[in-house]
């Protein structure tokens, strides 16, 4: 449905990738860990390797949780837009098709704040 307006209603999107100085937005949520109340927003160069995302960016953001250090990344499940996604650690975001404003969910079976989802 189009906006009902008095004139042809066309305005540019506010958050297109060109406005982020060569970077892209990526959202990551860690399921079952409400110490982090909502998924987090990151701004990264498309040339970042997935391993850098995990080791630097996500570790900075989620590392205060005692379970972060216990994660075995060979056993985690990633979802992209709700669908299974198998990242390649050595490839960049761009190389594995992660686009501006994609959302990833990290699922770590067995880790859920000892059943408290904290």
């Amino acid at each position: 449905m189009a906006v009902t307006a008095l004139y042809d209603y066309q305005y540019p999107a506010a958050d297109t990738q060109d406005k982020f100085h060569g970077n892209q937005l990526l959202y990551v949520g860690w399921d079952d860990h409400f110490m982090f109340a909502a998924p987090l927003a990151f701004v990264l160069p498309p040339s970042s390797k997935f391993s850098e995302l995990v080791e630097n960016t996500l570790t900075f953001a989620f590392g205060r949780h005692p379970e972060w250090a216990k994660i075995d990344f060979s056993k985690v499940v990633w979802l992209k837009s709700g669908q299974p996604f198998v990242p390649e650690m050595d490839k960049t975001l761009a190389e594995q098709g992660l686009r501006h404003k994609d959302v990833l969910r990290l699922q770590t079976p067995g880790l859920n704040g000892n059943g408290t989802y904290f």
């Binding site: 449905m1 189009a2 906006v3 209603y9 066309q10 305005y11 540019p12 999107a13 506010a14 958050d15 406005k19 982020f20 100085h21 970077n23 937005l25 927003a41 701004v43």
Partner: peptide, 21 residues
């Protein structure tokens, strides 16, 4: 959103604005 996407794509989202500088 789906009913009037033309309107909400213009949203001034603070988190994105911070990241735009």
């Amino acid at each position: 959103f789906d009913d009037e996407p033309e309107k909400y794509i213009q949203a001034w989202l603070p988190v994105h604005q911070v990241y735009m500088g």
